[in-house]
C-alpha cells in the first residue's frame, strides 16, 4: 500500500504479560518460541509485529482466539502499553505520549467498537452515544445534535431514549458503532464487532458496515476470527498466530500464495474463485493484444465462471473500470482456480 499515506505504523512491537516483562525481554535471545516464553512464566500477546496501516485502508486482523489480535489492536490505541518497539499514529509515537496527550488523541482521532458492546448500562442510547462528546466537554445542545445525527446514520431513530438492556444485540452494537463515530474519528478500531451476533444479523450488520465505510472512508483496523468476514471486508488481511503475524497481504494473495503452512491450512476450505479477482490472476500485456470482449479486472473468477467455461479463447483480455486493457487472463489458469486445482 505504498500509494497511501501511513496512519498507523507499528515497528517490532512486543507485548509480554507477566511479572516483569521488560526485564524478561532484556534477557531473551530473540529466537524463543511462544511456548518457550510461556514456560518462563510469560505470555507473548504480541510477538515482534511490524505492520503499517494506510489512510482509508481497511486492515483486517484475523486469527483464532488467543492469537493476540485483540491485544495488538489495544496496543494501537495504547489501552495496553507495549513492552518494546514503537507504534506511531500519524507520525507521533504514542508510547511517549503523556496521559493528557493520549486522552486528547482518543478524544479527537480514535473510535472503538467492542465485541460485547461495552455500553454503559445506566445511560440511554442517546447518552451512551453522546458520552465521548460529554467527556471532551461539548455543551449539551451540540452533543445532542451530533448524537442524533449518528443515531440516524446507524438507523436507530426513535430509540434514543431506550436503555441498552431494552435493545436487541444487533441494535446494541449499532449503538456501539454510533458511539465510536460520534467524535468523527479518523481511525476506527473494531474488535470482533459482529461475533456476538447471530449469523443473519451478522450478515446484515456487515452490509451496513460496508455502506458506512463507503460513505465515511475511515482508516480501519478490524478484528475477526471469521475468515469469510475477513475476505468480505478487507483491503488487506493480517493472519496472526501465537502473537505474531504469519502473513499480511490482500485476500487474493493470501488465498493464492499462502506464506506458511498455517495460512495454507486456513485457506484450504475457502472457495478461491470467490476471492480471487481477474485482475490479480492476469499477467501483464507485454505488447500482446488479445482479441475480443474483455473481462472486468474487478470481477471475481466465480462471477466469470459461465464465460470461462463457454469461451473458447485461450487468453482473455482484462480491462479496468475505464475500459483500458490492463492484462491477459489465461483461461486454463482461471478454470483451475474455479475448480479448486490452483
Amino acid at each position: 500500500m505504498s500509494d497511501r499515506e501511513t496512519v498507523i505504523s507499528c515497528r517490532n512491537a512486543w507485548k509480554l504479560f507477566g511479572d516483569n516483562p521488560k526485564k524478561f525481554f532484556a534477557s531473551m535471545s530473540g529466537s524463543e518460541s511462544f511456548d518457550d516464553i510461556r514456560r518462563a512464566g510469560y505470555i507473548a500477546g504480541v510477538r515482534d509485529v511490524s505492520v503499517d496501516v494506510g489512510r482509508g485502508e481497511m486492515l483486517v486482523i484475523m486469527g483464532l482466539s488467543g492469537s493476540g489480535k485483540s491485544t495488538l489492536v489495544r496496543c494501537f490505541s495504547r489501552l495496553h502499553d507495549i513492552t518494546t518497539g514503537t507504534i506511531t499514529v500519524e507520525g507521533d509515537d504514542i508510547g511517549a505520549m503523556s496521559e493528557r496527550e493520549l486522552i486528547a488523541l482518543r478524544r479527537s482521532k480514535m473510535g472503538m467498537v467492542f465485541q460485547s458492546f461495552g455500553l454503559l448500562p445506566h445511560r440511554t442510547v442517546l447518552d451512551n452515544i453522546a458520552f465521548p462528546l460529554e467527556m471532551r466537554g461539548q455543551d449539551r445542545h451540540d452533543r445532542r445534535k451530533r448524537a442524533m445525527e449518528v443515531i440516524e446514520l446507524v438507523g436507530l431513530s426513535g430509540r434514543e431514549d431506550y436503555f441498552p438492556r431494552e435493545l436487541s444485540g444487533g441494535q446494541q452494537q449499532r449503538v456501539g458503532i454510533a458511539r465510536s463515530l460520534a467524535i468523527e474519528p479518523d481511525i476506527w478500531f473494531l474488535d470482533e464487532p459482529f461475533s456476538a451476533l447471530d449469523p443473519l444479523i451478522r450478515r446484515e450488520m456487515q452490509d451496513e458496515f460496508l455502506r458506512l465505510q463507503q460513505m465515511l472512508s475511515k482508516t480501519i483496523v478490524f478484528i475477526t476470527h471469521d475468515f469469510d468476514e475477513a475476505l468480505r471486508l478487507a483491503d488487506r488481511i493480517a493472519i496472526m498466530k501465537d502473537g505474531a503475524i504469519e502473513q499480511c497481504d490482500t485476500p487474493d494473495q493470501i488465498v493464492l500464495n499462502p506464506a506458511t503452512p498455517y495460512v495454507r491450512k486456513f485457506t484450504e476450505d475457502i472457495e478461491k474463485s470467490r476471492v480471487v479477482h481477474a485482475g490479480v490472476l492476469s499477467r501483464p500485456l507485454n505488447g500482446a493484444a488479445p482479441e475480443g470482449e474483455p473481462v472486468q479486472a474487478s470481477a471475481t473468477i466465480q462471477q466469470l465462471a459461465r464465460q470461462l467455461v463457454n469461451d473458447a479463447r485461450e487468453d482473455l483480455p482484462v480491462a479496468d473500470a475505464d475500459g483500458a486493457l490492463v492484462g491477459v487472463l489465461n483461461r486454463q489458469q482461471a478454470l483451475d482456480v474455479l475448480l479448486g486445482d490452483a
Binding site: 489501552l79 482518543r106 480514535m110 467492542f114 454503559l120 448500562p121 445511560r123 458520552f131 465521548p132 456501539g176
Partner: peptide
Amino acid sequence: VSPEVVEAGKMAGCTRWQMLTRVYLPAAR
C-alpha cells in the same frame, strides 16, 4: 465492571476522575 466498559470509557477519552464517576461507579450500581 466489565473490561470492555472500562476500555470504552478510556477510548472516549475519560480522565481518571471521569472514569471513576461516570464509568466505574454507575456500572457498579
